[in-house]
């Protein structure tokens, strides 16, 4: 029986994961336009939409535009799902995080549909969201996403979206060749 492999230094692990996440998010111009960023704790992601005047719909209230909220939820859902797939590829070593670019990233899942439920007015301040992948099959995935502001127990919007999976593993192998 061989000796147990020594775990990698924590900063190496963190750097690899953060680099993979950055490659995923940095590849999408619309995320940058919306000003979103993601915080990672292990494999858990929290999306943050810092307040910006351009995100306002009704300037009289003022309130976030429903379209900004929908975009925030949809981006969080697709990144949450992609991250879960990418995580497995990175952790298993099938995909080399240091070589991830727009060209070599696995194709993102494609949205089939999304239903957004507006629960409360989006206030003119920062918003947060987390996605939960309820099902992730070979072809289809169902993702629920919830967004909140000051109080996590009082979400201002949530959504359920369905996505068509692209074969991440096939893509990864293709990129190696």
């Amino acid at each position: 029986m061989s000796a147990r492999k020594r775990p990698e230094p924590v900063q190496i692990v963190k750097e690899r994961r953060d680099r993979a996440l950055q490659a995923l998010i940095g590849s999408i111009p619309y995320i940058n336009f919306m000003g979103l960023h993601f915080e990672r704790r292990g494999d858990e992601l929290t999306a943050i939409m810092p307040y910006d005047d351009k995100l306002i719909g009704n300037p009289m209230l003022p309130a976030l535009h429903g379209g900004a909220t929908a975009s925030f939820l949809e981006i969080t859902a697709i990144i949450g799902l992609s991250w879960q797939l990418l995580w497995e590829e990175i952790e298993s070593g099938r995909v080399d995080a240091s070589r991830l670019t727009v060209e070599t990233l696995p194709h993102l899942p494609k949205p089939i549909d999304i239903t957004v439920d507006y629960l409360r007015t989006g206030l003119p301040r920062d918003a947060y969201a987390r996605a939960r992948v309820n099902r992730s099959g070979r072809r289809y995935a169902s993702v629920h996403v919830e967004a909140w502001q000051d109080n996590h127990a009082r979400p201002f919007a949530h959504a359920t979206g369905h996505f068509l999976m692209s074969d991440v593993r096939a893509e990864a192998t293709k990129n190696d060749s």
Binding site: I28, P29, G67, A68, E74, I114, V116
Partner: peptide, 27 residues
């Protein structure tokens, strides 16, 4: 517009921006 793109390989506008357009059009 370039900044609305969700799929940089194909230059496809992000679904979220399409949602925003349809939401505004509905309103």
């Amino acid at each position: 517009a370039e900044h609305l793109v969700g799929d940089p390989r194909r230059g496809v506008i992000h679904g979220g921006a399409v949602s925003a357009l349809m939401d505004t059009c509905g309103g």
